[in-house]
Design a protein around this nucleic acid. Sequence first.
DNA 1: ACTATAACTGACTTTTTGGTCATTAATCCT
DNA 2: AGGATTAATGACCAAAAAGTCAGTTATAGT
Lengths: 221, 221
Amino acid sequence: MTKKSVIVSTDERPEAPRRRRRKEARPAEIIAAGMQEFALRGFAGTRLEDVARRAGIAKGTIYLYFEDKESLFMAAVRERVGPAILEVAGFVDGFPGPTRDLLRLVIPVLHERLVQSDLHTILRIMIGEGSTFPGLTALYYRETVLRGRELLERIVARGRARGEIREGAAADLPLVIMAPAIMSAIWQMTFMHEAPIPPERFLAAHLDLITEGLLVPDAGR
Amino acid sequence: MTKKSVIVSTDERPEAPRRRRRKEARPAEIIAAGMQEFALRGFAGTRLEDVARRAGIAKGTIYLYFEDKESLFMAAVRERVGPAILEVAGFVDGFPGPTRDLLRLVIPVLHERLVQSDLHTILRIMIGEGSTFPGLTALYYRETVLRGRELLERIVARGRARGEIREGAAADLPLVIMAPAIMSAIWQMTFMHEAPIPPERFLAAHLDLITEGLLVPDAGR
DNA sequence: ACTATAACTGACTTTTTGGTCATTAATCCT
DNA sequence: AGGATTAATGACCAAAAAGTCAGTTATAGT
């Protein structure tokens, strides 16, 4: 049962060493492998053994670079989330046109970021296992959610100043603007297999709902 | 370390037996205790030992009534979800007024059901651990999500027929109507501790967004 | 070359927990 | 009352996986 890895080489070649020392490359490789496993099995369900195999190293090597499983996950959050938020923020500052156009620019990016890339994995783990690991949640809130909220609040403040956004409860909680994007991410992760709905349909519905509204203006009033 | 539970009674009373035989009451009690633990620790994280203690029984007793952990969870889904959906469906059929009023009636119920009660626990477990337990996801989709979709589709079809709902991508994916409610449930479960936002604010924003839209009609066009 | 360093390994230890089952005792039946 | 039934118990078992560490070997320095 136990793999003994006896190498029955017909000739000894000094090339192709079984081990390689690559102190610099390891952390990023371990994070990448970790995210793939986390995406597949969640936080608690991920075995470091599998992360190691995926990264092409031994389990012990992970502990050379990361304190424990939680540290590994936190490192992944740091590495992935930071750049994504900054990129989106670039759109908002100094945008000249009407709010409708700004939203049509920002919302697709939101979907892209949330559905593809590793962000949806992190989101899923936060939702599903955040309460078990409060440290992870706090970090994620500070580094991602809060930045996102600020972004949306800036959009709404700008729109209000230009008289393009209705006063009302929706404008008082800009967070709800991104609800359909979150729903899309959840759907892709959870129910895609039961009832596939392409992300583009969510995106189209999202844009339509936010920029045009659901009801015919003044209908049934 | 190990609790020995030696009872040093000063007098022997034949009353108050340590064991009680209550075949009928057990399943519901175990389900209730299970949901509380699931809410606290997720599916994988829940220890049957803790469920037993909360239900005031021994671990072995659980296995008298449920095949295994997964069966327990499925039983909980069945017991909780069925009645909730039926109740909501009652509103839609035969509602006489305009769509705006129907939505104002249905959306608050959605929030109530999703945020309070055990439904949000089930939702969270589906999101976080669904991919690890495909059987659970399939059951949940059939018994809850699908019914919810049908309900929303009926509302939209009715509203279209009455000329009260705009044609467009949002109406083509009625699912997005409930996105803010889901977001609220997630927020309460995940980030309440980091940045509390009362469910009523989500509800108000939701109603406002869906019935009035975000933008001033024809602004910036 | 050859020695020192530390990156790397994987078998082992420890902990945790789902699930089992021989034993105990509450309750029913006659 | 006391015998039969079966609900209930909790010590135990086995599996799984996190985390450790003594030993191995690639690589840099001399």
